[in-house]
């Protein structure tokens, strides 16, 4: 009965079906707290083994989205599936397949590193010996083995984050949620944590990561969703988003602010858009980075305009927000900090 042909079709079907199902998918998620619509119809989709960066200012709804997707909050409406399970109906089962590391490094400071991880392992249902073995493995991997027997309160910020991340990985979850994993870390610890996350992704883990930092999303995320006021306002790869934001910004401070209009006219040919006046700064998005500073100085000097200061900077999250929403990424509601 069995022909090779049949086998092929029989196995090919489910494989494509599985590959087609996203590791995380959310449709029309709404969550309100009193008058605040923390989530106002969020749609998300993350393919297995990829990283989605959820980018947005404080209070944009990033944390609320993570809390809904990790079963900590039930959405008012909309639905979401993670690792093939519904976040509301299958919540209990889903908790076995996800890891969560929060911005508040949720470890017990009075327990040692190893006690923290053993506790989490046993709460995943592991036997004490298995939990201990897994804890030791993770402590070594995260270079915490020397500090394993010290209470976590003696750890540095970076060490705590690593311990928190290790706790999220105890059960080797296929889907990992990282809520602002590097907020408040020094640059060195950030780089270490980034490398760790990249290694996890290389092993096939699907990651949803929230961040306020464009460079973090840029480095780690395959795709980025920009979220503001509870809505996804842009979605794409880092390059796609940057294209929408535009190129490098050139900021010029003039000797004589009165001459701003003359400066704008002189610099206009360097940009596709009309230069703008931001306070006493003339700002323009330059077409090419190389030579832009020299060209700007030459043009201004040619027009007889004195330059006090001149800066070239990369697009920042603020620029993304200015471009996409028309307002600056000011720290909005307290949603992310009140708990």
């Amino acid at each position: 009965m069995h022909t090779g042909q049949e086998d092929q079709t029989a196995t090919a079907e489910p494989v494509t079906a599985r590959a087609a199902e996203p590791a995380i998918s959310a449709k029309g998620l709404v969550k309100t707290f009193g008058k605040v619509r923390a989530l106002d119809g969020v749609d998300l989709e993350v393919a297995p083994g990829t990283v989605l960066g959820l980018l947005g200012p404080n209070g944009a709804g990033k944390t609320t989205a993570v809390r809904v997707l990790t079963t900590l909050l039930e959405p008012d409406s909309g639905s979401a599936r993670v690792a093939g399970l519904d976040v509301v109906r299958d919540a209990a089962k889903l908790r076995e397949r996800i890891g969560l590391a929060g911005q508040y490094a949720a470890v017990d400071e009075n327990l040692t590193g190893i006690e923290n991880l053993v506790m989490v392992g046993r709460l995943y249902g592991m036997k004490r010996s298995a939990a201990k073995a897994r804890a030791e493995e993770l402590l070594e991997r995260f270079e915490l083995d020397e500090a394993a027997k010290r209470p976590a309160r003696t750890y540095s910020g970076g060490m705590r984050r690593r311990l928190d991340l290790a706790a999220a990985l105890v059960a080797q979850p296929p889907v990992l949620f990282l809520d602002e994993p590097t907020t408040g870390l020094d640059p060195r610890s950030r780089l270490t944590l980034w490398a760790t996350i990249e290694a996890l992704v290389a092993e096939g883990t699907t990651v949803l990561l929230t961040t306020q930092y464009l460079d973090e999303a840029d480095r780690l995320a395959d795709r980025i969703a920009v979220i503001d006021h509870g809505r996804v306002i842009a979605e794409g790869t880092a390059d796609e988003l940057k294209d929408r934001v535009g190129g490098e910004r050139l900021e010029v401070r003039l000797d004589d602010p009165e001459r701003a209009q003359a400066a704008i006219d002189a610099l206009a040919p360097m940009s596709d858009e009309q230069p703008t006046l931001d306070g006493d700064l003339v700002v323009l998005t330059v077409r090419r980075r190389s030579g832009a500073i020299v060209e700007a100085v030459e043009r201004l000097t040619g027009a007889g305009i004195g330059v006090d200061d001149l800066t070239m900077r990369r697009p920042t999250l603020d620029d993304v927000f200015m471009t996409l929403t028309g307002h600056a990424a000011e720290a909005a509601e307290e949603e992310e900090t009140t708990r």
């Binding site: 809390r67 990790t70 079963t71 900590l72 209990a92 089962k93 908790r95 076995e96 996800i98 969560l100 929060g102 508040y104 949720a106 989490v120 709460l123 995943y124 249902g125 706790a167």
Partner: peptide
């Protein structure tokens, strides 16, 4: 939050 995210 951590405890509530665990299958305990």
């Amino acid at each position: 939050d951590r405890f509530r995210s665990l299958p305990m």
